[in-house]
Amino acid sequence: MTPEEFTLLFSEPTPRRVFCAVDLGGATPTEILAASGLEASKAAPAIGKLLRTGLLRSDGPGRLAVNEETLAAVAAAATLRQEEQAVAEQPDPQLRGLVRGGVLVHLPEEEDADARRTVLRHVAETAFVPGDEYDERHVTDRLRPWCAGGAVDAVHLRRLLVDGGVLRRDSGRYALVTPDGSVPGPDSSDQGSVGIGMSGAGTFVVSTQPDTGVQFEITPTYWLAFGSYEAGTVVSEDILTRPYQLQFPDGATKAVATFDGKNWTVEYGG
């Protein structure tokens, strides 16, 4: 029995009611008629059809039961049909279930960084031409067809492409970032680090990864204290002597601090 035959048969209410009656425990003709609410003249042809298609089977003299093997075979055929259709719609297994017919139907969560990066790279390389530049309106217009599936809107998708390092934005102009494979990733013995340094030392650092954009949101705090420490030593506030947190007003970049033996006095300036 094919999935199409199964669907057509159960589009008829009488066979459907008979089948449900048996599935709910009705085994004898009397039980089936009582559970389905059908007259014998209507139930009998439906029972015969369900027996011929293999959806019902004999379970002893005068008793019927659901044929689980037939149901399993129909389900397996339907699953295979869906898999074949999915392969036809999206040959790339990395994009299957995510991109269908030029439409983004699902965006992986941030935790699945590799899958998310693969999808964003595919969208960008399909929508934009290497070496060309686009203004913001044209970028959004090119991304809008990808958003027909409702997974994300075009403006959000544009931001994701920029934040993910797939599109470059400079002075209101956008361009596709084409990785050349020169950045060593986790599989390379030459993998390095990229980050931001303060006072000549690395402070906020992450490992290098090809085809990946990195943004740092820096909100450091500055402290005055007494102690003997080497550069790069990590210290906590509770072991500092006479700690004082500097709080620079807007526009101030310098501070002159004076300690009178008990308290700090700080004057801020530009």
Rank of each mutant, 00 (worst) to 15 (best):
R52W: 07
E84L: 14
G97N: 12
A35G: 02
S41F: 12
A34E: 13
D23L: 15
T28H: 04
Q82R: 15
G102D: 01
G102R: 01
V87N: 11
F19V: 08
V66M: 04
A44P: 04
L50S: 00
D23A: 15
D92G: 07
G62A: 08
E83V: 12
T79R: 13
T53F: 12
T53W: 10
P15N: 03
V87G: 08
L71N: 06
S36I: 01
G54C: 10
E84I: 04
G54R: 07
A65I: 02
E12C: 06
I32N: 01
A35Y: 00
E89P: 04
A21R: 00
G97W: 15
L56I: 02
P93F: 13
T79E: 12
L64G: 03
L24W: 13
A43W: 01
L95I: 02
L71R: 12
E89A: 15
D23S: 15
E39H: 03
L71F: 13
A88Q: 14
E83R: 15
G26D: 02
V99T: 01
L56H: 03
L51D: 03
L24V: 04
R81G: 08
T70E: 08
E31H: 05
T70Y: 09
R81Y: 08
E84T: 04
A44W: 11
L98C: 05
D92A: 10
T53P: 00
E68A: 13
A76G: 05
T28L: 02
P15T: 02
V18E: 00
Q90P: 09
P61T: 09
A44I: 09
E69W: 04
V66D: 05
D23W: 14
S36D: 01
L80P: 06
